[in-house]
Design a protein around this nucleic acid. Sequence first.
DNA 1: ATGTGTTGAGTAAGTACTTAGTCAGATCGT
DNA 2: ACGATCTGACTAAGTACTTACTCAACACAT
Lengths: 206, 206
Amino acid sequence: MSDAVPDVARAEIVGAVRRALAKHGYARLTTKKVAAESEKSEAFFFYHYDTKDDLVVAFLDWATERSAERLAAIDSDDPVTRLFVACDVLVGDYEDEDDRGINVAMMELLSHAPHDEAFHDRLSAYKRSVIDELAAIVSLGIESGAFRDVDPEATAAYLLMTADGTTGAVMALGMTDVGEKVRERLFDYLTSTVLADGVSPPAAFA
Amino acid sequence: MSDAVPDVARAEIVGAVRRALAKHGYARLTTKKVAAESEKSEAFFFYHYDTKDDLVVAFLDWATERSAERLAAIDSDDPVTRLFVACDVLVGDYEDEDDRGINVAMMELLSHAPHDEAFHDRLSAYKRSVIDELAAIVSLGIESGAFRDVDPEATAAYLLMTADGTTGAVMALGMTDVGEKVRERLFDYLTSTVLADGVSPPAAFA
DNA sequence: ATGTGTTGAGTAAGTACTTAGTCAGATCGT
DNA sequence: ACGATCTGACTAAGTACTTACTCAACACAT
């Protein structure tokens, strides 16, 4: 669909937007700064995309796709493992600088979503899909008897909101101590409230 | 401290910045748009504050103070009631348009915090103070025997992160259904994990 | 008269986006 | 085979406009 932009050009553009966002933030983003993050000229970006906003949307599409793929890539048949790993992925890795930049950028676009329809549409679709994905894991666990009979949708939403809030404080403000504590509580919650009696968390999340 | 700006002028300025942020977002905020939200001229704002950023910081100071006051204003001696009401306040009221605008604006400033030291300093101090406040309530509850022997700091951080994530998705994306579900789960969490055996939630939070 | 508050009319430095053109390589008629 | 022509990718140098911020001048209370 609408693949007017060649892959190699889009990769270059998305990379430059990503680096510029990490360095300056969305509010201070200019097309000049984007171009400065690549070897190409400023006009190069306007040759492939019509407006500055389209550049950012291209980055956002890439970022949401990447995040969705990371969730989908969890390769385990065990619902218990899948749920713990999924939450771990959603909270994010604040040691990794690239990851941090991408997460902060997505947050800034999220908070600008009320004023930008393209951001709003893409981000709410993304959040919905993550909730669906988590709810599917929860449903699977209930069927297999590993989980209690909780409401899958509500549980999924609850877990995602906790993860989102944590990435905000940790990635944007650097409150890593809070991040550690919340991660711990979150896994405690899964163990005590979602897992059925007698089921233990995966070894890595003790 | 540093009350160079008269109260009446500051109120006018903070109000105009608040309305401009609600209407356009931080990324698209201009001093012209701020002035358009008041009867005063653009130069009026530069007479009282040196830079555009100072105007936004004045708003941020007002907003964090307002939020902190709301938490502190909870008037109950019962730790159970105080904890439930505090969480209710933190998740926010997404029916109220003003409240929504303020919360979205604070979120946008939060996600810009990595690129703005003034934002970073104010917002991390604010988050810390909220965690402290919540932790104090939890400690009180433990002493009184109404709560289990949980870690006050970790529990406080966990609750705040969940509330923060929820306001994000709900206020910025309008996912009110998710908000309802999470609120419900959050109160369930308090009831089943924080409250001691036999202690019931306040009537309003059944 | 002096100081405090306020403004209309600026200005220099950006801002997103355009234009007119270069250039490498595919396609073509002969 | 070989030049002519076309096409998509790319850019240097703009353009029209917006931006944050300034300043001389005015109002008015003390």
